[in-house]
């Protein structure tokens, strides 16, 4: 997978591209989150617009990332879930733990 980082209105936006499926994907994802926390970027938005598939291990990493951001005193939100992923977030009740927004703009606004 590919991850690119940019900042908008003080919110760090990580754009994810590809699947979160292999061990390599997961390591990449975890270290991207860690890199933001190391720089004290505490408002983190994950843009899932270009993510196809997340398996159960990937979901575990996502939860772990959220936990770490919270531990650091920050907030992690998610936007742009495809229908399959939205269903997954629903029945796993992750939406109760991680705020989910339809669009990136909505999510960025919610940080203000």
């Amino acid at each position: 997978m590919k991850i690119s980082s940019r900042t908008e209105n003080g919110v760090t936006i990580l754009e994810l591209l590809g699947n979160i499926k292999t061990l390599g994907d997961m390591e990449e994802f975890s270290s991207a989150i860690q890199a933001e926390l190391d720089q004290k970027h505490l408002k983190v938005l994950l843009n899932f617009q270009e993510v196809g598939f997340v398996n159960s291990s990937g979901l575990g990493r996502l939860v772990l990332a959220s936990k770490k951001v919270i531990e650091a005193g920050g907030v992690m939100k998610v936007s742009g879930l495809a229908q399959d992923l939205d269903e997954l977030f629903t029945f796993t009740r992750l939406k109760e733990k991680i705020a989910v927004f339809k669009t990136e703009a909505d999510a960025v606004r919610s940080f203000q």
Binding site: L59, T90, T92, L94, E96, K97
Partner: peptide, 26 residues
Amino acid sequence: LAGHPPPVVVNRHTGAVRILEPNGGL
């Protein structure tokens, strides 16, 4: 039903389909 894909109930006589409501997370 904790974080799990909701089971499906199909009635063999009527064909009615009911899907269980999730009530817990991972």
